[in-house]
Structure formats: structure tokens, C-alpha cells
Design a protein around this nucleic acid. Structure first.
Lengths: 220, 220
DNA sequence: ATCCGTCTCCCCCTGACGGCGGAGGGGCCC
DNA sequence: GGGCCCCTCCGCCGTCAGGGGGAGACGGAT
């Protein structure tokens, strides 16, 4: 493998034990260097600001400012910010989503093996091309729920019927839909009736529900 | 670092060029060994079945069966299946979501540097603790959209009003809600009126829309 | 030339919905 | 004791929504 430049690391965790354990693991590698430690979120922000590391291992639960907030602040205030890896104990923490949204580059479990930790730090230090599942799997499942396979009836709706359903699902009355579509109210009634028939619903409310459940409203 | 066991790898990509490029990069590492290649999804499944690799680098677009399907089949049919890393060109491919859902252990961009590729393969070969964003960031954003901060009116709904709204959003009529809640129809009407007032909507359809938009229906 | 699907519009009728105003009982807080 | 909120119900009444019927026009397919 090509010779690697030294990766500068800051550890942020409120437990001294955890910090020294991480430091011990990382310092054993010649190409990794722990250049700073922080015990609180606020401290993490200032330490990172002055040490300018390549990677930050950031605990989620910390006094004063939690790891998520600290991540946000670091990414918001520093140009050329470090890669921040959020460290936590349980992968099902809802923190995962917040961490990702906050801009964390990675997500690490405390029970990770030393070997994995080292490789993860190296990898995250200079790339952003890989992602690992477990917690992400649930996100994907959510995505599937938000954009489900369109039910058969979606395809059978005619152009106008789709328009009508979309407007129904915006809470418009038939009269309003008629004005919006520049047709007569009777026409709208016809289309609504067709929509109800094709969706297998009995009133506009159920039709709107079907539209939402079908992801009909998410597709812009 | 501790001595590593050899990682057995299968490459699945319909372009010979890509396969030999990957093989060249991976073979340069003493602890990585390419034990098989496949040019189609179907071939990938059978090659994996007979070579039993630790890691599969799986292209998304392939003839016959795409990488996602192949991933599903491999994970479904093999006990102790390999870690499958899906390889693609663009990180915003909607494939990402499908790949994750299919059970891919990782996600790799073709433009990844050789060094990152090697490290990623090593990492994925024996761990599942890290995840990387970019594409995942959008998933997190989606999550935020699916579970938005509840609008103020949610908190102001009384217990019964919440129940009524929930049943409204299941498409029930007032009479049905009355039966379900074991109260008189008039009571339901009162609650509905209160819901409409508090949500600032004018009819049940709009109220249901508000409920959906507020994520009111996602919270189980 | 004919059929079928789509879009447009019409009438009539029933029933559900929602606005209005009111009322009684129970619990909680001061 | 007196508010206050919540839950429970009661009419009355106008409106809108949906069901059941059509019907005419246009276009594409056969």
C-alpha cells in the first residue's frame, strides 16, 4: 500500500476511560496521532478549532453541548472542517439520523473492534465513498415506506383523474377544483366518482388517505 | 496491527475493463485475493455460490439480473453469506436505497481512490459498525421530513380529539367513529368541530391532510 | 366504419357533514 | 364556592358530496 500521511485525531468523550482506551488503540498505529482530547461538547469545538485535526471521534452524550450540536457547530464555523465520526453505544439510537443530518462523516459503535476502529479512522480521513448499513437499513426501510411501490390503481388513473386527486389531496372542494381546472363542477364530480371507483374508496377523505399511503403526494 | 487473514473477493461487473482494474488494485495487496469474476447478475450468484468469498464487489447495472437482485438472491439463499459492496458511478442513484434494503453491507463509488477501495474492502470484510453519508444524508433529510416537528396544534388537541382525528384519518365516518369510540354521534360531531377549529381546517379532508403533513399518522 | 376510452356536462335524490347555539356533569385549581 | 376545561349530548339547517342515471364530442385503435 502507498505510504500514508499521518492522520491527526481529536477525541471527544466525557469519560476519561473511553478516551484513554481510544488513544491507546490509535496511538499504536504509526500513521495515526491523537492531537487533542475534549470532555464536553463545548470543549470539543474549541479544541478542534485550535488543533485542526483530520478526524474527530465524537461521543454523542456529553455535558453542556451534545455531540450532535458540537458537530453542527464545528462544521458550520470552520472552513475545511475535519471529518467527524460520531461514536455511540447503540446503533438504534435515534441519534443516528440527527448525526447524519448534522453532517457527520461516519458512525461508529463503541463495541467496534480495535482493528475496525483503526481502519475506519484511516478510511474516513480521506474519503467519503462508502456507507455501512445496520442503522441505515432502517432508514432505507423508511424510504420504502415513504415511496412505496405504486398500487395498481395509480397507473389506471387518467390524466385528469390524477389532477383531480392531487387537488382533492390539497383539501379543495369540488367547486374549487372546477375553478382551478377551468371546467364545470359536474365534470369534477364525474372525475371524483371515477377516482373513488378506481381507488376503491367511498369518499374523498378515504381517497386522499389512499393517495398519501400510496406515496402519490410525495412524487411532487 | 494484528496480522490479517486473507480476504477472498469476487468481482461482478459487466465491463471487463472495470474488473481488471479492480483486480489490479486489489491483487497488489498481500492480504486480498480475487477468487472469482462475473459479468452478469446470474453469473455472480453462481460464482459466489461456488467460490464462497468474504466480500463481493457488485456492480449495479448488469445484464439479465441487476446487482440489487443478485444481492437479494445471494443473501437469501446462502447461509453465512459474503459481505456485498454495491459499486456504482453516481452516489445519488436511487439504487442506493434499494441496495441498502437488499442488504448490501456497503456502497462504493467507482471514482473512489485505490487506497480507499482497498481499505473499504478490508473494513467491510469483518465489521459492520460504520456508515458513511453523502447519499445517506438525503435519507436523513427524508427522515426529517417524515417526522417533522409537530405543529403547535398537535399539543393542544385533547385526548379524545386526538382519537377522533386518528380515526378520521383512517377514513371513518362520524357514525363509525361514534361506534368505535362507544359514544353518541353528536359527541363525535363536537370533537370533529373542535379538531377542525384547532387545526384551522374547514372539513375533515383538510384535517386528515393536516394530520398526515404533521407526521401525526407516522407516530404509530 | 365502428368501437372504446376520455373528457365534458346535465338532472335528481339522499345522506353525511359542518355551523350554530345550547346544556349538563365531572374534575381540577385557586 | 366559583371558575375553567373536558367530555358528553341535543336540535336545526344549509351545504356539499356521492350514487344513479345519461349524453354529446373527440380521438385512437381495429
Amino acid at each position: 500500500m502507498t505510504p500514508r500521511p499521518t492522520v491527526r485525531i481529536v477525541l471527544a468523550d466525557d469519560e476519561r476511560m473511553v478516551r484513554s482506551a481510544l488513544r491507546a488503540i490509535l496511538s499504536a498505529e504509526p500513521d495515526l496521532e491523537v492531537v487533542g482530547e475534549a470532555a464536553t461538547g463545548a470543549e470539543a469545538v474549541s479544541v478542534v478549532r485550535e488543533r485542526r485535526p483530520d478526524v474527530v471521534l465524537m461521543d454523542v452524550r456529553m455535558p453542556e453541548i451534545d455531540g450532535i450540536r458540537a458537530t453542527e457547530q464545528i462544521l458550520a464555523t470552520l472552513s475545511d472542517p475535519p471529518r467527524i465520526v460520531v461514536v455511540t453505544t447503540f446503533e438504534n439510537d435515534s441519534y443516528v439520523y440527527d448525526a447524519l443530518r448534522a453532517g457527520a462523516a461516519g458512525f461508529l459503535l463503541k463495541r467496534a473492534e480495535a482493528d475496525a476502529l483503526v481502519q475506519a479512522v484511516r478510511l474516513v480521513s480521506h474519503t467519503d465513498t462508502l456507507l455501512f448499513p445496520a442503522a441505515v437499513r432502517s432508514l432505507a426501510a423508511e424510504h420504502a415506506r415513504a415511496y412505496p411501490a405504486p398500487p395498481p390503481w395509480v397507473a389506471r388513473l387518467t390524466c385528469r383523474e390524477s389532477e383531480v386527486l392531487r387537488l382533492m389531496a390539497q383539501g379543495l372542494t369540488n367547486a374549487e377544483i372546477a375553478r382551478r381546472m377551468e371546467v364545470g363542477p359536474a365534470t369534477v364530480k364525474s372525475h371524483v366518482a371515477a377516482v373513488l371507483a378506481k381507488t376503491g374508496t367511498r369518499d374523498r377523505t378515504q381517497a386522499v388517505i389512499a393517495a398519501y399511503e400510496a406515496g402519490f403526494m410525495n412524487a411532487r
